[in-house]
Write a protein that binds this DNA or RNA. Structure first.
Lengths: 193, 193, 193, 193
DNA sequence: CATGAATGAGCATTCATTCAT
DNA sequence: AATGAATGAATGCTCATTCAT
């Protein structure tokens, strides 16, 4: 499995670092290679092309979110509390890795339409888990039976995303995690109709 | 006033059309000029550079949203109804101009960070109007007095934006405007807490 | 005679001024037109093209040098004294019109090969007068009978030109005219063999 | 040391050839690359930009002049003979490489003011060596003790330069080297006062 | 596995000149 | 005579990818 090889990980981390520092359009393959301590050509032993590096960045990092949501789902808690934990975790991960926040909220969005479709596929797993959480709430009677899951998911994700982007654009100068309770309350009210 | 000259408008419209058809990175100035029926050099009599065209696209089109929200604000209606009209209008404008929807939701987001900061400034007017609407609802007692306006605005805009992007990414194959009542209900519940 | 019309002169003077201030490559026709207070198109009523303006600049200004040398030649003086007057005048004209010095010594030399050939033709009149002066000196016995006039002329003009260019390149910070006696002495010795 | 790599030399030689054939303004980077037998991009592995190629042309070729003058200075000869050898060498190098003569006397002079300042810095070494030669002549009593070295140097270089430019402009149709004795005699007389 | 020198396609912008008014 | 809006040709440089070693 190539993604377990040390150079694979080195290159992905170098990409996050270089993109966060220099911006998407200034993140040349040669810069990433240098940061990773490998030759330019070596990149192509691990990745098909530059786009493939960026998709991998997203996959690797999104996995962290998804894995935690999976854990949350298996806990013995009301759906509402699970939603809270999910929001808090989302904010916490990005708050703790500010380079990653810059990359996911700002830089990666200026990639090509094609890349963004690929990124969306990666996002889908996360969104599917969110759907599962919402369904759980409906089944348990916490959320209304007629809740439109797709719309609710778009509200939850849209709000989280907009909140995070806003925080990044304001130079991350306030505490994102502190917003979790209020965001949770807002979304919960939305859901409960 | 150069933005009233017919060529100015022609070029802006050509830009929307070319970007929607070819994507942001394939929207060369020469293509836009050809579509607008002017010489390449003529573009530079009306715009400082390529980025300036794109900012103008956004400004011109966003003005349509903002102007309508201004109208709405002056109507004699409960804040909740005004919010509904705003959502419906937002969906309607993008539903009726699908090229514009592609450009604002997908293509313009892959522009440089600098351009996106400029675009955000244009967005601010829209968001400020939204803030005014929310405040109105608080003052009238429709929305809770302790509503965090910034968060609420991020929820409203984030939900609308995510819903629209999702619709565009699904090839605009369902009716976006029909979603308005449900989105409105969701958001209203969120607000009311 | 078009060159007597006021706009003709205005444009030539504007060209000297704009080239001296902005440099040859930054002296666009539109800038010259603006400085001259006419429309861009008007330039083309008086000049065939941009190159024609520059040639005219040279012609108009070189005429001043040539006219004075003609006067000198008609004076009743030894050739050696005439040479002195010529050098002094050359230095004086450029010392008094520093913009002109910048234009002739630096800026106009970065014009195309073709333009420089045309400029050289204008120079030829000046050089022919210099030849006449040298011949006078030979005929009068002041200069050796076997003086190679072409070489001598190249020495005289080359020295004057190099001295002036050197002065311009040193930001005209010393007095060029004061060099005349020493330059004259040097050249005279050279001639006398 | 990149300037010893074969491609570096190939590109410099190609530049001289292309500029001589096509003129400065028609010497596109792609033409130079083709003549050198490398890809356009390869140029930029060896040179910072186009201007850097031109400066390098001058540096490489001027080094030949300077190196020979250094050799001359170390010979056991009167200053007058050294001056003769210097003039003869200058003429000989340009006589034998006519493309180089065209490039240095005509084409490179139409480069930007900035480039010409850079070129002048390269020239300075040559002129400094010439100053050393003149000083030697003064010390040995061959030249007058009150010789103004700066002026004398401007006379020597101005004359050589004007003679060469004149020869190039006349399509190099006579023998430049044959002029050496006469130019030497003229300059020597000038110096001796 | 790893290297890194070499490749070459692709594009925004300027500005001399024209010509309808 | 004078205007100035419109034209459109022309080019230096970057950087993702390859491949001989």
């Amino acid at each position: 499995m190539k993604r377990e090889k040390p150079k694979y990980k080195k290159i992905v981390d170098a990409a996050v670092s270089i993109i966060a520092q220099n911006g998407y359009h200034q993140a040349q393959v040669s810069k990433i290679a240098k940061e990773a301590g490998v030759a330019d050509g070596t990149i192509y032993l691990y990745f098909k092309n530059k786009e493939d590096i960026l998709i991998s960045v997203f996959q690797e990092k999104m996995a962290v979110f998804a894995d935690y949501v999976k854990e949350i789902l298996e806990m013995d808690l009301p759906a509402s509390d699970k939603l809270y934990k999910m929001i808090e975790n989302h904010f916490k991960v990005l708050h703790d890795d500010r380079n990653l926040a810059i990359v996911t909220q700002l830089e990666l969005r200026q990639s090509s339409k094609e890349l963004r479709f690929r990124i969306n596929e990666v996002l889908k797993e996360y969104l599917t888990l969110l759907d599962a959480l919402l369904r759980e709430g409906i089944d348990s009677g916490e959320f209304p039976a007629d809740l439109d899951i797709r719309l609710a998911r778009q509200m939850v994700f849209g709000t989280i995303d907009e909140t995070t982007t806003s925080w990044v654009m304001n130079d991350q100068k306030y505490d994102l995690v502190e917003l979790a309770p209020r965001v949770h309350k807002l979304l919960l009210s939305g859901m409960k109709g």
